[in-house]
Design a protein around this nucleic acid. Structure first.
Lengths: 133, 133
DNA sequence: ACGCCATTTCGCTATACGACGAAACAAGAA
DNA sequence: TTCTTGTTTCGTCGTATAGCGAAATGGCGT
């Protein structure tokens, strides 16, 4: 019980993971999309997603070469659902969240095949182009 | 917004601090009482309490030589109150929480002047006597 | 089978955090 | 004021965690 609560706590005690959860509120995303929005290395994002999944806050779905993550609808951790409700209450007025939401909108406009095949420099171009708006 | 949420997350991402919050659900306690129940050094408990206070989850009241801590009723952090509700939902079936509750009952039976003036060895005696029950 | 590519795991570095003892602080008692 | 004592702060140590690059894994397409 207490360790499950702690697991949830550790899962959100980080700047990046709540950002990921907020991104997933609009629907499932593949790892490369999340990586592009956050501007972090794929290895780092993968670790974050693994933690969120272990905490029962997120779930994954394999589709071909890509793996899509979504908010968990049913979790073995009894504190996951209430925590997701609390996360949802986090205001979109926050600068970072608003910026992420904007980036996500741009990223969604690009087909996954195009985005993921993009060279790192091109991804940077995308990110900077979005950031400068 | 997001940093306030992270502050709350960090405040509960630890085994000891949720235990403290559960203890405070039964009413305010002074530091020496919490220290005795948790079996940690006063410096450690003080740090935990400081974090809980900064997160807006706990509040303090000075009474003579002692400082009493309680759950915060009004907090500047908008996520504090919902988090306390979630903490309250943590089941007392948990072994650690149940044991803490038992120790707290014994500790409450001892006047604060007696408990705090107790030598560390006597505190150990109290704790072990309680534990062995 | 082989290559390709999204994702994960591994190895590593830098920083953050929990724990304690010792010293500093604060407030009642003498 | 001086002493005592509950609490906090400081300094330190050991462990945990975020971040990345490089290598391993797992599917898809050829």
């Amino acid at each position: 019980m207490l360790d499950q609560f702690e697991t949830i706590g550790r899962a959100i005690a980080d700047p990046s993971r709540p950002r990921i959860l907020k991104l997933l509120e609009d629907g499932e995303l593949c790892v490369c999309q999340i990586t592009t929005v956050l501007g972090l290395a794929p290895a780092t994002v993968s670790k974050h997603l693994s933690l969120l999944r272990q905490a029962g806050l997120a779930a994954q779905r394999k589709a071909g070469r890509w793996i899509y993550y979504r908010l968990a609808e049913r979790s073995s951790n009894p504190y996951a659902a209430p925590m997701l409700v609390l996360v949802r209450s986090v205001s979109g007025d926050d600068d970072i969240i608003a910026a992420d939401r904007g980036k996500l909108c741009e990223v969604r406009a690009i087909p996954v095949e195009r985005l993921c095949a993009a060279t790192p420099s091109f991804q940077t171009t995308i990110v900077s182009a979005i950031t400068e708006e």
